[in-house]
């Protein structure tokens, strides 16, 4: 829309979170709505306005916590989290399957939320915590990993690490999930070999085994 149509934001309001009560009222004619936005905004009152650093396109240092350890890598802004994990940190459990994240094979936790590393830029993760499927392995694997093995919830195994992260994340949120809930809740991952039936069995087993935590 034309910039003439944008009402200038008054400073004080901006410092309370970027929402001008007056402008909102002007634009929408809904006074209550403006109040709601203002109340919802996070107040950063005492912080002096700053300008934002622009980095790149050259490689820049990115520091994030990966699997509990602080790591600094050098990567271009365009590098995906998946590329950095796989080629710089040797964490190859998350897999490159789809460029648009539609397979779920690159699922990792970003600040404890399951996201697709293939559609996340590494530089977005500056200062954040990344956790990968590798944290579920080791000598005492996570019950989800054990259940996947016990129920043969894999064939070629390429989609499996992403599925394991998804199941772990899903069960963390839904620790007593029923079979119907499992069938409804794990559709962000794709498997070509056709392991879904065994994935359902593995997830149910984790729920029933009470080892879900």
């Amino acid at each position: 829309m034309n910039r003439d149509q944008l009402a200038r934001i008054a400073v004080g309001d901006d410092e309370r979170g970027g929402v001008s009560r007056r402008a909102f009222i002007k634009g929408s004619g809904a006074a209550a709505a403006a109040t709601a936005i203002a109340q919802g905004a996070i107040v950063m009152a005492d912080e002096a306005p700053t300008s934002t650093a622009v980095v790149g396109p050259e490689a820049t240092a990115i520091t994030m916590t990966v699997n509990g350890r602080q790591r600094t890598v050098s990567a271009e802004p365009r590098a995906t989290l998946l590329e950095v994990l796989r080629t710089q940190l040797d964490l190859t459990g998350a897999k490159p399957v789809s460029s648009d994240g539609s397979s779920g094979a690159s699922t990792v936790w970003l600040d404890e939320k399951p996201v697709s590393a293939s559609t996340t830029l590494a530089i977005e993760c500056e200062g954040k915590s990344v956790r990968t499927v590798e944290t579920l392995g080791g000598v005492k694997p996570d019950p989800v990993v054990s259940a996947f093995a016990a129920h043969d919830a894999m064939q070629c195994g390429f989609c499996t690490p992403g599925f394991v992260v998804a199941v772990r994340a899903f069960l963390d949120k839904n620790p007593t999930a029923s079979e119907d809930e499992i069938r409804a809740g794990l559709n962000g991952n794709l498997c070509r070999c056709g392991t879904y039936a065994n994935v359902i069995a593995a997830a149910l087993d984790v729920v029933k085994g009470g080892s879900n935590g």
Partner: peptide, 21 residues
């Protein structure tokens, strides 16, 4: 029998061709 490489695959430890770096 449980497949002998099951845990390696499920935990991301198994190395595929595209993982060789």
């Amino acid at each position: 029998q449980t497949r002998i490489d099951g845990v390696a695959k499920a935990s991301g430890a198994a190395k595929y061709s595209c993982d060789i770096n």
